[in-house]
Write a protein that binds this DNA or RNA. Sequence first.
DNA 1: AAACGGACCAACCGCTCACAG
DNA 2: ACTGTGAGCGGTTGGTCCGTT
Length: 303
Amino acid sequence: MGRHSCTEKEKLRKGLWSPDEDEKLSNFITRFGVGCWSSVPKLAGLQRCGKSCRLRWVNYLRPDLKRGMFSQEEEDLIISLHEALGNRWAQIAAQLPGRTDNEIKNFWNSYLKKKMIKQGIDPTTHKPVPKTGDHIQQPNGLLNLATSDEMGQEFCVNNMICGQKEYDPPFLSEYEDSFDPNGHHSNFVTEYDDPNNQIEGNPNSNSNYGFKFNSMPDLANIDPGNFMDTDFSDGSTSRIFSYLSSSNSSNVSSHTGIQTSNMMPNSEQYLWDFDKKFESRFQFQIKNEENSNSWQEGPSRYI
DNA sequence: AAACGGACCAACCGCTCACAG
DNA sequence: ACTGTGAGCGGTTGGTCCGTT
């Protein structure tokens, strides 16, 4: 597509890296540091393209990589971050020291996604799979309810059959309104595109655009005791708020692409307010019931 | 023991963005 | 303002491993 693959230029190696190649690359980077990747293969004596070298270093050779199984804390954090950020693996990885975006992406696709589906949670929206009687937001913004006729019908997320529709009370509309068009919740993250908001201490950040958490602790600052006490198992939509309440928030992020800030002067107070609001609104009013009899496949958002 | 299928993960591909010329 | 290039990101692929038949 106009752009040639880097292996087309010359006869370059592809596929798995040999220990010898690893050693050459590792020695070179250790000695000279990370610079211009396109010149690394030549200087390091490798028959690879720069892109391939960069990937190998970032995902495998970097000395600060953690490796091994993901801990429960990491697993919970990934779920929370994914809920807020979506498939922004690099930004998620930035909050998990020693983990790479590729590793997290693979972990998500091979394990976490399936686990959530099994628990009846839509891995895209992080909400319970809709059941008959739920509000189902159509692309045109109208809300529909699954009807009794539709009970038992298969429910699909991303063309995957995830379950069957059945009745369950809908969520509150106000909460739903807080989602941006990307499906991110504005109570969790704030999008910015502001020159004054450039991430401090992140030399790799050449963009002023991104997300910052309204309050989000770094994994390194988590008190494991508190964290473990936090129950995320119900797929609660206020998971992040539970998380916030259980640890001291910090500004964090020396190594990340995500800036966190204490925009909320008192996270716990905010949490309490939010939960109260959420709770009181959870006794809903069903709106737009006359649109209750259509079911559409495709990218619906469920509340 | 061999064949098969699913899970996992390393690596590739194509795209976007930033920046220098 | 435009163009070319490199870096980085996310989606996808394909090889390997392992359990099951």
